[in-house]
């Protein structure tokens, strides 16, 4: 498993602070070490050659390309992106974000992204998330997916909902329970 930090949209949420922790779990993490950077946020977010060639690696590769239209265009930078048959582009939707808060907004957002293969419902309000909110997100994402003629790949929810949240809550979508590392990954 290789994780690649290609997020040049929001460089403040980054794999840098947990790079070593994830590597200790056996993952390959392609990201800067903070001490190797210079002028963070003043000199732009820099990309390295190994990031651009990452699709040529063996095994599963997960790319964080940042959010929105600018994020999706980041894929253009990758060598061999056009020839990759196994590449799957999932748009992760949080219906608690103002720009994807309604079915119409989600449709407009996803259409602006270019190629998208599936949607993932990741509706949450951090620690305030409850099942009703996840359920409502599943409904909105599912309705948008129908109009967009895309499958909903899954609903993502915090590990703490295991046992209480079922597939019946989210219109039969598979549920991916998540352990959250990102709250510790600021700058």
């Amino acid at each position: 498993m290789t994780l690649v930090d290609l997020d040049v949209v929001e460089p403040f949420y980054t794999l840098r602070p947990i790079k070593r922790e994830l590597e200790a779990k056996g993952m390959t993490v392609i990201a800067w070490e903070t001490r190797d950077t210079m002028g963070l946020g003043e000199a732009g977010t820099l990309i390295r050659g190994d990031m651009l060639w990452s699709l040529h690696r063996e095994g599963d590769i997960v790319l964080d390309i940042g959010y929105g239209v600018e994020g999706s265009k980041t894929l253009n930078l990758l060598h061999g992106v056009g020839e990759q048959k196994d590449l799957r582009i999932n748009a992760v939707i949080n219906a608690s974000r103002p720009m994807t808060a309604s079915v119409d907004d989600i449709i407009e957002h996803v259409r602006a992204l270019g190629r998208v293969d599936a949607l993932i419902n990741n509706t949450h309000l951090a620690d305030e998330t409850d099942i009703a909110l996840i359920r409502e997100g599943a409904r909105l994402v599912s309705e948008a997916a129908q109009v967009l003629n895309l499958p909903v790949e899954a609903t993502a929810a915090d590990e703490k909902f295991r046992g209480s949240l079922t597939e019946d809550d989210v219109l039969g979508q598979p549920i991916r329970f998540l352990t959250r590392y990102m709250p510790r990954t600021f700058w």
Binding site: R97, A101, L125, E128
Partner: peptide, 14 residues
């Protein structure tokens, strides 16, 4: 009114 998940800069713009 609505409860949203946002960055501070986004909050200022809204």
């Amino acid at each position: 009114e609505k409860r949203m998940f946002m960055t501070g800069n986004e909050v200022c713009a809204y």
